[in-house]
């Protein structure tokens, strides 16, 4: 008797899974402003001799756009301790939200769609928690950012590489463009390159000091285990820049071109 129930259940489950709408119904639980980055392999830029060449990254959800000033206003309105005049210095430096005109005013209406910048890692983390999300790990961020316009590996797309190189070699404009104004990548994610730099949950796992062109730029005296690291792809300048940038940050720093987006487990 029991065995037959089991059989029926299994058959039912099988039928459900085979039903064309099943998968999209599960996916429908995902917020509309996020996209799925499927399971993939990330090739770390820096790794030890014994570390694997590729790290498997489980599928996750990622905000399609960076968090905007309008989004952030909703957060500070609900959480006054993250307003400009109330934030504790430990959690954000003096420049926190300095582009805003007051605690709850981000200035001209066109700022609504611009990415929020001058936010610290703590503020970004608090926002993500408030949203029921989290910051992406560096590995997740890099995996999503390695996709080109038409495939999961942008390294094979000259048009993509050109667009990326152009951004990394130009200064940040005085007025940031709005989010999602440029072309989305293969997964439907906007602005991973070309708009701002972004916080990751483990930004302080990068080890680049000073000049990364020659050796690994690491010093045994300052970093335990430093001698064992090597770069896997010395030609990937944008990635070098990102790792160098991240390793120079401190959790309370706020900068004119540094914002964030959230991620979520699936």
């Amino acid at each position: 008797m029991r065995a037959s129930w089991k059989k029926i259940l299994t058959a039912l489950l099988g039928l459900m899974a085979a039903w064309p709408g099943f998968d999209s119904r599960v996916r429908a639980e995902m917020p509309p402003d996020m996209v799925v980055v499927p399971t993939g392999n990330y090739r770390p830029l820096f790794r030890g001799e014994k570390d694997p060449k590729e790290i498997p990254v489980p599928s996750f959800a990622l905000d399609a756009r960076p968090v905007t000033n309008a989004d952030f206003l909703a957060f500070v309105t609900a959480n006054p301790r993250w307003q400009r005049s109330q934030v504790k210095r430990l959690f954000a430096d003096e420049a926190y939200l300095q582009q805003w005109t007051s605690d709850r005013d981000f200035g001209p209406p066109e700022n609504a769609h611009r990415p929020v910048v001058f936010v610290s890692w703590f503020a970004a983390k608090a926002y993500a928690t408030w949203k029921g999300r989290r910051l992406p790990t560096t590995t997740e961020w890099e995996l999503a950012a390695s996709a080109g316009f038409s495939s999961s590996d942008g390294a094979n797309e000259p048009a993509f590489l050109q667009a990326v190189a152009r951004w990394y070699s130009s200064p940040t404009p005085a007025e940031l463009p709005p989010v999602a104004a440029s072309r989305a990548n293969f997964y439907g994610v906007y602005d991973l390159h070309g708009l701002i730099w972004e916080w990751t949950s483990d930004f302080n796992s990068s080890f680049v000091t000073g000049d990364a062109r020659g050796d690994t730029g690491l010093d045994r005296q300052f970093f335990c285990g430093a001698g064992s690291l090597g770069a896997s792809d010395r030609a990937n300048y944008p990635a070098f820049m990102r790792f160098g940038f991240r390793s120079s940050l401190n959790a309370s720093y706020t900068l004119h071109n540094l914002g964030f987006r959230c991620a979520k487990d699936l």
Partner: peptide
Amino acid sequence: VRELAAILGVNFQKDARGQFMHSN
């Protein structure tokens, strides 16, 4: 641990053997 390290300005990363590379 990640948060405290971030606040102190300590960078760290775990390698495949479970050893931590970290700032001194």
